[in-house]
């Protein structure tokens, strides 16, 4: 079980996964918009999405938990 934390402040641009999806390490999970640039956030390890804590368009800051994996 692992959390995907937000690496920098920005706005959630797109969420590419749903609860229950199985993902592998280095899959793109969320695209974050910071400084007018789209930054893909990659999965730190293999797992299944347990919770998604953010909505598209939401403002997030560094350290926020975006997705919970199990």
């Amino acid at each position: 079980m692992a959390n995907i934390e937000c690496p920098m402040s920005g706005k959630v641009w797109k969420i590419l996964v749903k609860v229950g999806d199985t993902i592998a390490e280095d899959d793109e999970v969320i695209i974050l918009e910071a400084l007018k640039m789209e930054n893909p956030i990659f999965a730190p390890e293999d797992g299944v999405i347990k919770e998604i804590n953010v909505k598209e368009g939401q403002q997030v800051t560094e350290g926020d938990v975006l997705v919970v994996l199990e």
Binding site: M8, S9, D26, M37, N39, F42, P44, E62
Partner: peptide, 26 residues
């Protein structure tokens, strides 16, 4: 600003996908 920071970030993430340099480069 912020082009140069974006370039640094992009180069960093090309080397290592999970390297987020943007805020450090700002």
């Amino acid at each position: 600003v912020p082009m140069a920071a974006r370039v640094a970030h992009k180069m960093g993430s090309e080397a290592d996908k999970k390297n987020y340099l943007l805020m450090h480069a700002m």
